[in-house]
Design a protein around this nucleic acid. Structure first.
Lengths: 150, 150
DNA sequence: TTGCTCCTCACGTCACGTGAGGTGGC
DNA sequence: TTGCTCCTCACGTCACGTGAGGTGGC
């Protein structure tokens, strides 16, 4: 989900873009998965900048494709936050060693996610192979029928 | 999950093989996903032949890898049952037309599942590509650091 | 002004988790 | 006989779904 606009979105628009309901977004906010809009007065409308939408979309992707629980998503989000904090330091005045450690952290996180994704991919590949084998067997049966061998 | 034994299994053994808890198995039985052991007297131990284990494993695979709800699993199970009934007719005395229709039904079911699996595979491939791109960017950053460009 | 979307409770639901207390097979 | 696994309630939990009743921005 990519957004080019700059106008902050309302909860319904976010929900539609990301493919969830507004209830889900409110629930995630409750759990601390989304920055709970510190400066929002009670009863006021929620508003989401592009960055929040991208982040939510990423979390939903992890949930749907890898089946992560919300506890696991919270862990991911915290790791992402830590990484974002580091990235901000990047533009401060870090030594080369500090920069190297920032990059290393990034590697760690992305590699872990990639490992999870690849393990899922392998399982799905197996599943697809099984199904294709079944299709072949059916195709053979059909051929025999067409030849009139009963 | 393949099993070579013939001895009917107990619920705990099935659970371990399939990767779920005994609670899940009992719950599925309650929903009608598993033949509810017609001839079991109240309080007696449940017992599962190999065929049931294979079937359950298949359902769990659909649940975990494709994220099907139990309502959807019930639909799948019913389709499988219908197909099994047809397959039994196969050995009866069907006409060639009947045989052709049995094969066609099989194609329909397997093709639908394959379509679902492939759509999931595409999404995961995209995800993996995104992550690999992030890895490349990190690798470039690291190279620049090693060259001493601060 | 009129809709429409938003808000906050708050109870319901789905898919199990987790004991409590008891019975049955190697 | 002793464990171990099994049994049946039955309440708890996680991740939301679904109204009820009310307020706020194009």
């Amino acid at each position: 989900v990519t957004t080019t606009e700059q106008r902050p979105l309302r909860i319904g628009e976010v929900a539609e873009r990301v493919g969830v309901t507004t209830r889900t977004i409110r629930y995630y906010e409750e759990l601390g998965l989304l920055a709970r809009g510190e400066g929002r007065s009670k009863g006021a409308h929620r508003t989401y900048p592009d960055a929040d939408v991208t982040r939510l979309a990423e979390l939903i992707r992890l949930r749907d494709l890898l089946g992560l629980s919300l506890d696991e998503l919270i862990a991911v989000a915290e790791a992402e936050d830590a990484r974002a904090a580091l990235r901000d330091q990047w533009y401060g005045d870090p030594t080369d060693d500090e920069r190297a450690s920032i990059v290393k952290q990034g590697f760690e996180i992305v590699r872990q996610q990639l490992a999870l994704v690849n393990s899922r991919r392998e399982k799905l590949d197996e599943f697809a192979a099984d199904l294709e084998q079944r299709l072949e067997r059916l195709a053979e049966l059909r051929k025999e029928l067409e030849r009139g061998e009963s």
